[in-house]
Simulated assay, not measured.
Amino acid sequence: MSDARTSPYDALLLLSFGGPEGPEDVVPFLENVTRGRGIPRERLAEVGQHYFLFGGVSPINAQNRELLAALRADLAGQGLDLPVYWGNRNWAPYLVDTLRELAADGRRRVLVLATSAYANYSGCRQYRENLAAALTRLREEGAPGAAELRLDKLRNFYNHPGFVEPMIDNTLAALAELPEGVRDGARLAFTTHSIPNALADTSGAPDDPARGMPGGAYVAQHLETARLVAEAVAKETGVAGREWELVYQSRSGSPQTPWLEPDICDHLESQATAGAPAVVMVPIGFVSDHMEVVYDLDTQAAEKAAELGLPVSRARTVGADPRFAAAVRDLVLERAASARGERPARCALGALGPSHDVCPADCCPAFRNPLPAAAGADWTD
């Protein structure tokens, strides 16, 4: 039975990307990630070398366990009776198995937190497609309770205070790690995952205010988060006019396909050439310090900065920060109130306002093999 404050929902699902937890997992994990693209196992073993540098273990699963514990503790601390489950797109615990568990436990209407804050295909729509595909599979199998299971994804949270405020504090802490003589002149490089320009240009809904800005909603939302953090850092440090830029990392795919630029390593080189005294890398595009942070930033970018003689530091991601867990609770209560026909306050910082609850069918389309319009909506009957 659901709590009155979270009714009609009776569970929360933490939905994430997943990652290998040992050397033997690396290639099978990458096969899951790249399924359908025809990439040979030998090539995947080459691609997986950065995992092997860390013993074949991605930090993401351990960090999701920490977030899971933080969410449960926050909800319990507020007297909310809402069980929290966890499922992944590409590794155990697999989404389909978690949905099977939810249905078997008698859960019927479930809120879903995807560990991606911004509008784009792979970070939002693809997770909704994963939910639809997993639920369809369970229904075709005749899994008990699957026919009655409904899943609603929580809105994007890039401008929620519980996401932005920890990033502000983490950026201030990273600034403090720099030598005092370069601290005030240090520039901020806000980093996120590069995606193909075609996906960036079509990210968000056509009527989304963010789509009126250069680069579609994906870029516009990141710029908004970066601005909010940069302005707060300037206020806290008393350093006005500190230079900052949105840059990208973790590019993959064909070199013939245009992707968002500049890459973080190219950016560091240009900053060194321009005489920047130091750079703070702020990974606003990631919820946790997973492999794309510890390898692409802490390893590759840090090595590039050392080669350039450029002092750098790196801000932590929000991870299991209690303020982020509280923000998820806020989003849960907000969505539950809306489902009950109420008009709750919708918390958001900056000029773009809160994201929509239910994504329109034409929101964040894939530029490869777009699904029919019906697949774009939340999987609810």
Rank of each mutant, 00 (worst) to 15 (best):
E231G: 07
L310V: 11
Y218Q: 05
H290P: 02
P196I: 07
K304P: 01
I264A: 05
E243M: 02
T192Q: 03
T237H: 10
Q249E: 11
A220I: 02
A198T: 15
A240N: 10
G241V: 13
A189F: 02
Q271T: 02
P255I: 09
G185D: 11
L199Y: 14
A186N: 08
Y218H: 02
E245L: 12
S254V: 13
P196W: 12
E245G: 08
K304F: 01
A217D: 01
C265Y: 07
L310P: 08
W259K: 05
V182K: 03
E236P: 14
V247C: 13
E243N: 10
E292P: 02
P196S: 13
P283H: 00
L223C: 14
P214D: 07
S194Q: 01
L297F: 03
L228F: 07
E224M: 10
T225S: 15
S250D: 00
A220R: 00
G285T: 01
P277Y: 05
W259C: 08
A189K: 00
G185V: 01
A230M: 08
S254E: 11
G216T: 03
V182Q: 05
G238F: 15
P206N: 08
P214R: 08
H193G: 02
D296C: 10
G215W: 01
A278M: 13
L223F: 06
D207I: 13
V233A: 02
E269W: 00
V182F: 04
T299R: 08
E243Q: 13
D263H: 11
L228T: 06
Q221N: 12
A234Y: 15
P206V: 09
W259M: 04
L308E: 10
V239L: 08
A301V: 01
D289G: 06
A276W: 00
G215A: 13
T299K: 11
A217R: 00
I284Q: 02
V279A: 07
G215P: 14
A305S: 09
L188P: 02
R187C: 05
G253T: 13
A305V: 05
E245I: 07
P283R: 01
D201G: 14
L310Q: 06
V282S: 04
A272D: 12
P277Q: 05
Q221W: 06
Q300T: 15
P209R: 04
A276K: 04
V233Y: 11
W244D: 12
D201Y: 15
A226C: 11
A305I: 12
A230N: 15
G241A: 11
P209L: 13
A205W: 02
Y218A: 07
W259P: 06
A305W: 01
V229T: 09
Q221D: 08
P196L: 04
D263A: 15
H290W: 04
